[in-house]
Structures are given as C-alpha cells and as structure tokens.
Design a protein around this nucleic acid. Structure first.
Ligand SMILES: [Mn+2]
Ligand SMILES: [Mn+2]
Ligand SMILES: [Mn+2]
Ligand SMILES: [Mn+2]
Lengths: 233, 233
DNA sequence: CTTTTCTATTAGACTAGTCTAAACCAGGTA
DNA sequence: TACCTGGTTTAGACTAGTCTAATAGAAAAG
C-alpha cells in the first residue's frame, strides 16, 4: 500500500524525468513538491527501499519500471478525471486540475473503468496531455516543440498547454488557443512576447505563457518561413 | 481546517447520537470507528478543544451545532455521491457506499454543487437515507419503525435500508425490497425471520436483515391487523 | 458503606511526514 | 593541489494519529 504522499512524489519525479531526463535531483523534486530538501531526502530513501526508484547518493534518482507504473496510474486517474469533469459536469478546463489533484488518489479502479467508458476511452485530456493506457504502457514522447522556440512565419498546431494556472487557461481559452488550433507566428518581440494569428485574429502571448505551450508542425508540407500572412504587429 | 479523520469521527458521533441519543460513549465511538478506546479519548479531547462537541469526562460527548454542521456536510457529500454513482455511472446500490466513503472528504463545494444540480437536487440517496440540504438544516427524524418490530398483517412501505453490507443489498434488490416498495408482513417465525409479500411474491428475511430495514405506515387508512392476504408461510 | 467490575483515561511508545540547523561532499576556482 | 561554495544528507525535533499496558473513576453488587 502506497500513501497519497508517496504517489505524489512519484508523479512529480516522473514529470521531471520526462522533461529533463534522469537523474532527478533532490532540489528539483523539492521545488516541484514545495517541500524542503531534507524532506525529499527522507522520502526518496523510503521510495528507494520499496523499489520504486534507483538512488545514487548526491547524484539523484531515477524511477524503476514499478515506480513509473505508479506514476502513470496516478496520471491516468488525474487526466481521466479532468476529461470527465469538463465533459460530463460542465467544468471549464481552468478549474479541473485542482479538483483532479484532490481526487486522483481516492478513486477506485472500478470508478476509473466507468469514467473511461463513459468518455469512450479518450487518449488526451482537455489540455492535450496524453492519458496513459489502462495497462500503463510507457507514453511515447511526442515530437513537439515549445511555441516560445519558434520564429516568425512558422505555422504550427497547438498540441498541449500547461494545466497549472487557471488564469492563464482562461486567457488562452478566450484567445482560442486550445489543442488542435492552427497558429501562425507573426511576431516575436524583444522580451519574448510572441504574437500569433489564430483564425482571423491576432493574439499576443507573453514569453512566460509561450514557454508553456507545446506545438507540432502543421502536418505535411515543408514550411519555408514565408511572411505572406504576416501583418503588422 | 479539519482532517479526514476528524470528519469521520464527527460523522460517526452524529449517527450514534441520532440512533441512541446523547451522550455518546467513548466505547460506542470506538466500536463504530474500529479504533481503541484510548484513541477515541484522545480524539474527542481534540474535537472538544476545537468546539465541535461538548464533553463530560467519563460520561460521553454531544455534538455542538458546529460539529453537527460538519457531520451533515460530510453526509451530504456521501449521499450525493451515492446518488450520482448509481444514476450517472451505472453503479449498483451495493457498490456505492465504499466509493462514497473514499471520496466524501475530497470533493470541493463546486463539485458538490454540480453533482446536486446534475441530479436535480435529490433529497434521498439510493438507500432511502435523507440527503442534508445545502444549508445543512437539521434533518427531521422521520417517523419510521424497524420492519423487525412489525406483526403479521401489518402493511408498510420501505423507507430506508442499511447501506453497509453489499451482499445484503444485492439480496434485497433481488427480492424487490427497495425504498418505496409496499410490503405486507405474512409471517414472523421463532427466531425473528420475517416473511413479507412483495407484489405477488413472498420473501423471507432473516432477523438480522429485518432489523436494518426502516418502514413507514402505508399512507392513510387505519390498519387493523387483518390476515386476509396472509397465505401459508 | 465497601467491594467488585467495567469503562474511561493516562502514560508511554511508534509510524508517517514534515521542518530547521548543522555537517558533509563534490565539483569548480585559485 | 588546496580551497570554497552550493547542493545533499544527517541530526534532532515536532504534529497527527494510532496502539498497548497501566491506572483510575463510576456504577453496580454485596
Ligand atoms: Mn492536471
Ligand atoms: Mn487505475
Ligand atoms: Mn453510504
Ligand atoms: Mn459541501
């Protein structure tokens, strides 16, 4: 049996490992979890003892297959809940993350099954994050890039947005920047402000926001950075 | 801020107080919660310090209005969840209690609101238990009696059944004994086995089950215990 | 009015999770 | 090579919740 707290650590380590690769440092975990480093040292010791991660002192940790399975299970619960709340209970995509965080450790496998079925076994949540499969296969790292790293003229499709900040999500929803939306980068200003064309509108996104939006190329054609759709910023 | 554990104690004390009236003894709480008496002594001390109950040493406890409000809040969550799970996620009434117990402390007020709305603000759960109102008014003790206390010839309507034992609930569901069903008591055997007519069928219920079914009189007419519908047991 | 019995409380210990303060190590700097 | 610096670990303490064993009070029996 695994406590909520342990599940949260494994989930956090999974995310960090997915972004920056192993090993994951004590301080990185501490920041993510909003705990002190000694607290983290203590917890990763327990998790290592129980076989959920490999630990090299003063170096960092890496999840074992078992640890990764736990993380994927929790993420599956989280993302199915987010999808269910938006689709069946009329939540906005800005509200669901906190609710899912509170419930993810407490639903039964039966509940998970019924929710997945009610939704037709979706494979992404409302923010575009992949929902791990029921047998917890490793999630394939999609070939996405950060909107922030693109240049004027690039034409891309929104793949995932960060689910953390409700205010940012409300803003993006207004702007029409949701998974599946096609964007053209029309301007990149000095401090990283990115202006994009969304349909017939233009939207300016602060660098802090553009850095949290993952995009993929717009499908087939080669994409020379032509400025033909670029109107004045 | 109130922990899950404290909420569970207050819920347990509420039920005990509703059944046998205050004061509620340490040992009664210990049995209900499956904890040891010293554990309960320790916890009721904390709850009294925080104003959720009055405590007289060696006598027992009684909920304050504030303690009762917490208990009603948790019960509202529990029963709304039971109703939602049966109506929207196709759970049987036997399965919902444990799931609701796990979730009741973790849903937000927003979730409560949306679930209540999705169900049309019901006032009873699938087992016939009253769902406290959103403003947590005291629940009026309905004039019900235990099926176990009835005599041959009595005609009654099922009001509430116990939600604790899934096997019993499956059995009652098969037997057609659900809230709203009209019953006629056709036999009471030596060890308390009660046989009732349900529609055109007869069902025999062990005393242990009959003791957990609450019933109310069958509406208007005076009810002389005539045996006219009584057929052979 | 004592004594017995039963229940409740106190005492003390243990686990999980967290913190602050102090020691420690590893890698970069001089 | 020797030193410094910054992240990491150890040491020790604290809270919440729980237990067992011992004590003490209340209520019933004699
Ligand atoms: Mn989320
Ligand atoms: Mn699962
Ligand atoms: Mn229940
Ligand atoms: Mn509520």
């Amino acid at each position: 049996m695994l406590s909520d707290v342990m599940e949260d650590y494994l989930k956090a380590i999974y995310s960090l490992q997915a972004e920056r690769g192993p090993p994951v440092s004590t301080s990185a975990i501490a920041e993510q979890m909003e705990k002190t480093p000694p607290t983290v040292t203590s917890m990763i010791g327990k998790l290592a003892d129980r076989g959920f991660l490999e630990r090299e002192k003063y170096k960092g940790v890496e999840l074992t297959d078992e640890g990764e399975a736990v993380a994927l299970e929790v993420l599956r619960h989280h993302r199915l809940l987010e999808a269910y709340l938006t689709e069946q209970l009329d939540y906005s995509w800005a509200e669901v993350h906190d609710e899912a965080d509170a419930l993810e450790h407490h639903i039964s496998e039966e509940f998970e099954r019924r929710v997945a079925e009610a939704l037709g076994n979706p494979d992404v949540d409302p923010h575009g994050d992949p929902i791990p499969s029921v047998d917890l296969d490793p999630v394939d790292r999609a070939e996405t890039s950060l909107l922030d790293d693109h240049e004027v003229g690039d034409r891309v499709v929104v793949s995932r947005v960060s689910d953390r900040d409700p205010a940012e999500l409300d803003y993006l929803d207004d702007a029409g920047v949701v998974p599946g939306t096609e964007l053209v980068v029309v301007d990149v200003a000095p401090f990283g402000m990115v202006t994009v064309r969304v349909g017939d509108d233009e939207q300016s996104l602060p660098e802090s926001v553009a850095r949290t939006i993952r995009v993929r190329p717009v499908a087939a054609e080669g994409d020379p950075g032509t400025a033909e759709e670029v109107n004045g910023a």
